[in-house]
Design a protein around this nucleic acid. Structure first.
Length: 776
DNA sequence: ATTCGCAAAGTTTTT
DNA sequence: CTTTGCGAAT
């Protein structure tokens, strides 16, 4: 009976994948090709073949993907204990069991980026590293990169003449030492420790290889070297490794993911079975053609033949808006319209953007248009101060060695244990090889600490000891003790600030989550902390709720929506500034757009604004070069619509149907407001024959990116000439005196007091034309 | 020791 | 614009 469910309604290629049992398998699965389906059905097939579920391991990239897989398998093969989860979670679990092999204890803490950043900064301060030429973030990046490449601290070799590398080679071992001393790991360590453990303990390796005989890896194109090493090590005696992925959807190169892993899979294993899932069940023909045309511009790829039996559908829309506000407002309006007049469900709509910062305007527009929406945003919840504070208490109770956690909570809420006291504690701890909590225990011995601080420390240690004695209770109860006995809750309750009341509400939410955890898990504190450290808010994305979804392109991977809006297709944003100078970076940006396009089932709108607010000021934009790569004939192009402002309202109003045709020339009429071009340059440019100009004819009257950079550079150079006290002239405000200067480079700001005005004004020099006025 | 205020700085994507 | 960090005042 179940058998039939597994195999019916599968296509030939899907069936081939599902029925593959032994030996390596490579599933190249295009977007919307029923990949998850094939994977879950294959697991069901394995079980049906008599393979014990405990021997099956399914590794995913996000918890969300794992949950979905679990839910689907539940329907096919109920109550079978197949382990499914993220790489990090799998490794955390292994590391619990074999902690001593990595120099840890099983109650180790997992540091998030924030925690490990602080640990690194402490290490840097202790080692008195000169930070003139680099920033801690860059060092953290370099260490993270090394860990992903499985370069342990003792093996790190900087390139000759690489100043950052030199610093890293000093700091990396010290940082790792600090983590171990706190019995803690960072995200990268979870992978690193396990990979090294497998490399150095052949017996353990073969035990686990045997234990996990059938391994599946989802999104294999996004694995990094450490992840590769782990699955490779577990697939030697039993090379039944099935990987699924799509090289065209590899979007985590910046995080060390290597396309090599999937591209070389066939060379890496013998007798690889390859299955291609190329039929798309998600999108219309029109959408798929646009996606295909775009991705064909990548050189580093395996050609793939995407096709679909779905209807042709409406053409993909490309819309230009005057400003980011218009973009957001009109999209929100359009969605509201579709909901009220066409019966569209909010949950079937999504808005995607390249960076989280872009969500704000859309958010506001949605509120104004009365459209229900949810924002899927990184790890916003668990990143909040109050949440981190409270969790740090739990972390300290679970792992008293955890210096990071101790430093976070020892004076939160304020107990009169300040910087100097902490320095004394640290000093004592270092001299005697103690953790900070141990040092605090014997603060009576530290003469440099004043009596008053000593009492405060003693009280704190008593608090922690009391809480530790209650640490075996359910998580909700422990949280309750922490909140009341630490005084954290009272401190917030007594506060008149609205912000603090919000914090209380967040803590309330945390309590609810803890209660749910208690109900579902036997686990206790340690397990709770583990899951709290390894969740992203992306996982909390609710498909059940009837709301429009706002998220980044990265978060969108693996999802699908009937209507999709892709916004801010502008140079510098998509492709992103930081990727523009490397060809591989550009290809990854292109893939990111490909992922976005292929999320859409029925309708897709791509848009850009001609002006966008960025760091406070409005800048003219340059449409994304990717737009030139889309098939022109396929697109329904719409020029900017001009909002009408009525006399009673500040809010723009849009005509229901007419806005499409309306005001095509709005931008051209207002071109002077947006384009601030150096007159000389303008003359220069206009001398050239028009063919020589860059062919961005979507709006050729705008400056090109190169022009813009050139202008900014000139102004930046010019800015160096200004000194406080100088008399300058501004086109609008007349003569004035420079009162102050601040910031550097592009952010250099001059504060000027004008003769005819009372108040002072601030100008960003890269954005303003100021001339020196002759001294009288 | 704590609090407050200002200035500078920074902004990709996530486990 | 927002957040973070540092320094000065209480």
């Amino acid at each position: 009976m179940i058998e039939k469910d597994i195999y019916s309604s599968l296509t030939a290629p899907q069936l081939a994948a599902v029925q593959h049992v032994d030996g390596p398998l490579l599933m190249l699965a295009g977007p919307g090709s029923g990949k998850t389906r094939a994977v879950t059905h294959r697991i069901a097939h394995l079980i049906a073949q008599g393979i014990p579920p405990q021997q099956i391991l399914a590794l995913t990239f996000t918890n969300k993907a794992a949950d979905e897989m679990r839910a689907r398998l539940q329907l096919l093969a109920p109550h079978r204990p197949v382990w499914m989860g993220t790489f990090h979670r799998f490794c955390a679990r292994l590391l619990r069991r074999y902690a001593s092999l990595a120099g840890l204890q099983e109650n180790y803490s997992i540091y998030d980026t924030d925690d490990s950043g602080k640990t690194l900064k402490r290490t840097l301060a202790e080692a008195e590293v000169d930070l003139t030429w680099t920033r801690p973030e860059r060092i953290a990046n370099a260490i993270s990169w090394a860990k992903n490449e499985l370069i342990t601290p003792d093996r790190y070799q900087p390139k000759a003449g690489d100043p950052l590398g030199k610093v890293v080679s000093e700091v990396y071992p010290a940082y790792q030492q600090a983590l171990l001393a706190s019995n803690a790991v960072d995200f990268d360590d979870l992978l690193l420790h396990v990979a090294v453990m497998l490399r150095e303990n052949p017996e353990l390796r073969s035990t686990l290889d045997e234990r996990y005989r059938y391994i599946m890896v989802d999104e294999y194109q996004d694995t990094n070297f450490a992840q590769y090493a782990i699955v490779r090590a577990l697939s030697i005696d039993y090379p039944n490794l099935a990987v699924t992925g799509d090289p065209d959807q590899s979007i985590y190169g910046w995080r060390g993911a290597s396309l090599r892993n999937i591209l070389d899979f066939e060379k890496d294993f013998d007798n690889v079975a390859v299955v291609r899932l190329e039929q798309n069940y998600r999108s219309t023909k029109a959408i798929l053609r646009v996606a295909h045309e775009l991705i064909s511009h990548n050189t580093q790829r395996k050609e793939k033949d995407l096709f679909t039996d779905n209807p042709e559908g409406e053409p993909v829309a490309l819309v230009e808006y005057p400003t980011h506000r218009d973009e957001a407002a009109q999209i929100a309006h359009q969605i509201a319209h579709d909901i009220t007049h066409k019966g569209l469900r909010p949950r079937d709509v999504a808005v995607f953007y390249r960076v989280n910062a872009l969500s704000r305007t859309v958010e506001q527009a949605m509120v104004e248009a009365g459209v229900p929406f949810q924002i899927v945003n990184g790890h916003a919840f668990y990143q909040r101060k109050e949440i981190k504070d409270v969790l740090a208490y739990l972390q300290l109770l679970n792992n008293p060695q955890d210096d990071g956690a101790l430093l976070r909570v020892i004076n939160t809420p304020p107990r009169g244990i300040g910087k100097t006291t902490l320095n004394h504690l640290a000093e004592h701890a270092r001299r005697h090889g103690l953790t900070r909590l141990e040092a605090a225990r014997e603060c009576g011995l530290i003469e440099s600490i004043k009596a008053r601080s000593r009492t405060a420390i003693k009280k704190f240690v008593e608090l922690i000891d009391r809480l530790i004695s209650q640490a075996a209770e359910p998580v909700e109860a422990i949280l309750g003790h922490v909140l009341t006995e630490s005084g954290y809750q009272d401190a917030l309750k007594g506060s008149p600030l609205e912000e603090d009341q919000e914090r209380l509400a967040n803590i309330e939410e945390l309590l609810t989550a803890a209660r749910e955890f208690d109900a579902q898990h036997e686990g206790g504190l340690e397990a709770y902390l583990e899951q709290a450290s390894l969740v992203a808010d992306t996982d909390a994305f609710e498909t059940e709720v009837d709301k429009v979804t706002l998220m980044t392109l990265h978060a969108a991977k693996g999802l699908e929506f009937a209507h999709v809006y892709l916004i801010a297709l502008e140079e510098g944003l998509l492709p992103h500034e930081r990727s523009r100078d490397s060809p591989s970076g550009m290809e990854e940006e292109r893939r990111l757009l490909f992922v976005g396009i292929t999320r859409a089932q029925e309708r897709l709108q791509i848009s850009y604004a001609m002006n966008r607010n960025f760091r406070g000021t409005q800048w003219p934009t340059v449409p994304s070069s990717f737009l030139m790569e889309l098939p022109r004939g396929e697109l329904k192009r719409t020029e900017s619509a001009r909002p009408r402002y009525n006399e009673f309202s500040q809010e723009p109003e849009y005509a229901e149907e007419a806005w499409v045709e309306e005001s095509i020339d709005y931008a051209e009429e207002h071109v002077d407001e947006y384009v601030q071009e150096d007159p000389e340059e303008q003359a220069e440019r206009e001398k050239k024959p028009s063919q020589d100009r860059p062919k961005i004819n979507l709006n050729s009257f705008l400056m090109t990116g190169a022009d813009l950079l050139e202008q900014q550079k000139k102004r930046a150079e010019n800015a160096l000439r200004f000194k406080p006290g100088m008399l300058v002239e501004h086109a609008e405000h007349g003569l004035g005196v420079i009162v102050a200067l601040s910031g550097g480079d592009r952010n250099r700001v001059a504060t000027i007091e004008f003769e005819d005005e009372d108040k002072q004004r601030k100008f960003r020099l890269s954005h303003t034309d100021l001339t020196l006025a002759p001294k009288k």
